[in-house]
Amino acid sequence: SHLLLTEPAPLAANQDNSTSDSSLRTLLTLCDLLNRELLVLIGWAKQIPGFSELSLVDQMSLLQSGWMEALLVDVAWRSQATGEELMFAGNLPLDEAQCRAAGLADVYEAVRHLTVRYRAMKLSPDEVVTLKAMALANSDPVDCLDSLQRFQDGLHEALQEYESTRREQNRTGRLLMSLPLLRQTADRAVQALLRMHHQHGIPIHKLLLEMLNAKA
């Protein structure tokens, strides 16, 4: 319930107007959105119980590892009700053709796969916020294993407690076993954005670039 309460309001995309090239505009709009979402995500992470008890080094390491995963849980969740479109924001639905034109065909495919998988699992909002926090916590510590394990255990216990009120056997395990797909999806998205930046010179905001480079 704490995670549900601290869930940030979704951001709207600000349409880029700096170019008449619609594919480039899509990409620039998306990168601006991601940069602002990252700011919100860092503020959100601080509110997850146990996160602030981690050392600064471990906080950085978890965010550098899990930020794209956490953001993609939201995209996949927002896209549950739509047909083929991915809802990067409420006002930024992108279909396969738009993603392909923007050089993000493989990102579309991967995130769509994740969306379909989550849809089949019929996630509840409680599960979504917990998965998001777990995506952030699901990393190796640089600094202090004990405090990271306490952080992870707290989330795990919350999920188990929630699932114990439901009837589906093995649900906790199934949710946890969906995390590798999420990581794989996030890796593809990070690689695609880095490629757009390095090979095609797409300008990327400082924070987003710093977080992408941490994964390069």
Binding site: G43, L63, L207
Partner: peptide, 15 residues
């Protein structure tokens, strides 16, 4: 750490 300057600063700022 210099490479991750912005994240470092954002985490150090109080909410």
């Amino acid at each position: 750490k210099e490479k991750h300057k912005i994240l470092h600063q954002l985490l150090q700022n109080s909410t």
